[in-house]
Simulated assay, not measured.
Amino acid sequence: MAQDEFSRITGLPDDLGIDADLQRTHQVLTVRVDTRRYGKPVTVVAGFDGDTDVKALASDLKRTLACGGTVEDGEIELQGNHLQRVPDLLRERGYDTER
């Protein structure tokens, strides 16, 4: 194996995919509820680093929660107040959260 086929973080082969898991655990995501126009609640997930596929995660959360949402400025916005469920869903996917 060439040197560039090994992880810079762990030194293990890239094929194992350990770097992605480690990057997820080092991020601490913030979950909060904001109020938008007409008093509608929006759950906001923030704190992603540049390597995270935020759009794919947002799509997965929207499907799981059966709600609408978007990604703006690197933050996930979900329609409705999902403060009780989102931290648990993120932990299931390997992220650390705070409120």
Score class of each variant (00 low, 15 high):
residue 2 A to L: 02
residue 2 A to P: 03
residue 2 A to D: 09
residue 3 Q to G: 03
residue 4 D to V: 07
residue 5 E to D: 09
residue 6 F to E: 03
residue 6 F to M: 01
residue 6 F to N: 02
residue 7 S to Q: 03
residue 7 S to E: 04
residue 10 T to H: 04
residue 10 T to Q: 00
residue 12 L to Y: 11
residue 12 L to E: 02
residue 13 P to F: 05
residue 15 D to W: 11
residue 16 L to D: 05
residue 17 G to T: 01
residue 18 I to G: 01
residue 18 I to W: 02
residue 20 A to N: 07
residue 20 A to W: 03
residue 22 L to C: 05
residue 23 Q to Y: 05
residue 24 R to C: 09
residue 26 H to Y: 05
residue 27 Q to N: 10
residue 27 Q to M: 10
residue 27 Q to H: 02
residue 28 V to E: 13
residue 29 L to R: 08
residue 29 L to W: 05
residue 29 L to T: 10
residue 30 T to I: 05
residue 33 V to K: 12
residue 33 V to I: 15
residue 34 D to F: 05
residue 34 D to A: 11
residue 37 R to C: 06
residue 38 Y to C: 00
residue 38 Y to D: 06
residue 38 Y to M: 06
residue 39 G to R: 14
residue 41 P to K: 14
residue 41 P to M: 11
residue 42 V to G: 01
residue 42 V to S: 12
residue 42 V to E: 14
residue 43 T to H: 11
residue 44 V to I: 15
residue 45 V to Q: 01
residue 46 A to E: 14
residue 46 A to S: 15
residue 48 F to M: 07
residue 50 G to R: 12
residue 52 T to F: 02
residue 52 T to S: 11
residue 55 K to A: 12
residue 55 K to N: 08
residue 56 A to V: 06
residue 57 L to N: 09
residue 58 A to N: 01
residue 58 A to R: 04
residue 59 S to N: 09
residue 60 D to L: 09
residue 62 K to G: 01
residue 63 R to C: 04
residue 63 R to A: 12
residue 64 T to Q: 13
residue 65 L to T: 06
residue 65 L to P: 07
residue 66 A to E: 13
residue 66 A to N: 13
residue 67 C to D: 00
residue 67 C to A: 10
residue 68 G to D: 13
residue 70 T to Q: 14
residue 71 V to C: 08
residue 73 D to Q: 11
residue 73 D to F: 09
residue 74 G to P: 15
residue 74 G to C: 13
residue 75 E to H: 06
residue 75 E to G: 01
residue 75 E to R: 15
residue 78 L to C: 00
residue 78 L to G: 01
residue 82 H to R: 02
residue 83 L to Q: 09
residue 83 L to E: 07
residue 84 Q to H: 04
residue 84 Q to N: 10
residue 85 R to C: 00
residue 88 D to G: 12
residue 90 L to G: 11
residue 93 R to N: 07
residue 93 R to P: 05
residue 94 G to L: 05
residue 94 G to C: 10
residue 95 Y to F: 15
residue 96 D to H: 12
residue 96 D to M: 08
residue 99 R to W: 06
residue 99 R to H: 10
